[in-house]
Computed example of a mutant assay.
Amino acid sequence: MKTIGHAVVTRSYGAADVQTYEPIELGKPGPGEVLLRQTAIGVNFLDIYHRRGEAKPASGLPFINGFEGVGVIEAVGEGIDDAKLRVGARMGYTLAIGGYATHRLVPVSRLIPLPDGLSDVQAAAVLLKGTTAEYLVRRVYPVQKGDIVLVHAAAGGVGLLVTQWAKHLGAVVIGTVSSEAKAKLAREIGKCDEVFLTSDQTVSWDKQVRDRFGETPVAVVYDGVAGSTLKKSLALLRIRGMAVVLGSAGGPAEPIDVHALKARSLIVTSPSLPHFTADQTSLHDSTSALFDVILSGAVNIPEVCTFSLAHAAEAHTEIEARRTTGSVVLTA
């Protein structure tokens, strides 16, 4: 059995236009795999790092980008006897490269049964970002009631989930954003108590935090920007505070003096989602917690920006230009 579909293929590292939409041919699923006909594929900054060559797939070039998606099982490989994994079942997955395609093979270990309350586009928008938010606020630094939490890029796909979840856990949430439009999102959707503009030329965001909350008030900072932001964030942390570096949208973090951290016993960590969802049990524990807060209304999925799969390059361009808010999804 062969399946004919289309995929966005990256044949060289570089700008968004190195990605081309091409026909592909797939064989039948092997043992421990299913063939998924995809309906929605999540786009993440992780994809951009891989397209640029800043992170490289183990298979090398060429490759099909994308690490999460949603679809319907069309065929099941040998040795799979789980009744949930039947032809026609709706499934999501995360951290399985090869997502930018109409059809793909997915290891059973990465599959996630989806609740009826989530549409395909919503699920594709939230699986990777939502499990990221889960491990950040529940396991990397378990947010406690009354903690002051600082979230950079608070109007981004991960940021809007982290801020809502931290608020649900009882934290006082501070967000930073780059524009007034994003500030509105961070307040209204992200439920931030305070939002400060990184683009403010009159008063810096870190001074505004001090003026409002004191000299070193922050329990944890979730920093997806890095660049010059990390040093300013460290200066705001309380004794035994933690800086969690989860991305570098603003460029590589400026070097820090690790010995200076001792003055307040600060912790700096840069965790990775695969280490927190490495097996099916930990993955399903994470998605179960995620679905609980979404279906209860504690965390709302922000409005999703969609592009057709054939226009993946345009989606990357918009994300890199920081013209998107919330999540971006490709529809197949």
Rank of each mutant, 00 (worst) to 15 (best):
P252M: 04
P252A: 12
P252L: 06
P252V: 05
A253V: 06
E254S: 09
E254V: 07
P255S: 05
P255G: 04
P255F: 06
P255H: 04
P255M: 04
I256R: 00
I256F: 09
D257G: 00
V258Q: 02
V258K: 00
H259K: 07
H259V: 03
H259Y: 06
H259R: 11
H259L: 07
A260K: 08
K262A: 10
K262W: 09
K262H: 09
K262L: 09
A263H: 09
A263S: 11
A263I: 11
R264W: 14
R264N: 09
R264T: 03
R264I: 01
S265H: 08
S265R: 10
S265N: 12
L266G: 00
L266I: 09
I267D: 02
I267P: 00
V268G: 02
V268I: 14
V268E: 01
T269F: 03
T269W: 03
T269D: 05
T269Y: 03
T269I: 11
S270Y: 00
S270E: 10
S270N: 13
S270M: 13
S270R: 15
S270G: 15
P271R: 02
P271F: 02
P271V: 01
S272D: 11
L273G: 07
L273I: 12
L273W: 13
L273M: 13
P274L: 11
P274Q: 10
T277S: 12
A278L: 13
A278T: 12
D279N: 15
D279G: 06
Q280R: 15
Q280F: 03
T281C: 05
T281R: 15
T281Q: 15
T281N: 13
S282M: 10
S282I: 08
L283R: 12
D285Q: 14
D285H: 12
S286P: 04
S286N: 11
S286G: 02
T287Y: 10
T287M: 05
S288V: 00
S288I: 00
S288E: 14
A289G: 08
A289T: 08
L290I: 07
L290D: 01
F291H: 12
F291V: 04
F291C: 06
D292R: 11
D292V: 01
D292H: 11
D292N: 13
V293Y: 01
V293E: 02
V293M: 05
I294H: 02
L295C: 10
S296E: 13
S296H: 05
S296T: 13
S296Q: 09
S296C: 06
G297V: 10
G297S: 12
G297A: 11
A298L: 06
A298R: 12
A298T: 08
A298F: 01
N300T: 14
N300K: 15
I301V: 13
I301P: 00
I301Q: 01
I301D: 00
P302Y: 06
P302T: 08
P302L: 08
P302Q: 06
P302V: 07
P302G: 03
P302W: 03
E303I: 07
E303K: 13
E303C: 03
E303P: 04
E303G: 04
E303Q: 13
V304D: 01
V304L: 06
V304C: 08
V304T: 14
C305E: 14
C305W: 00
T306M: 01
T306Q: 10
T306R: 02
T306A: 03
F307W: 14
F307Q: 07
F307I: 05
F307L: 08
S308M: 08
S308C: 07
S308D: 15
L309A: 08
L309G: 05
L309I: 09
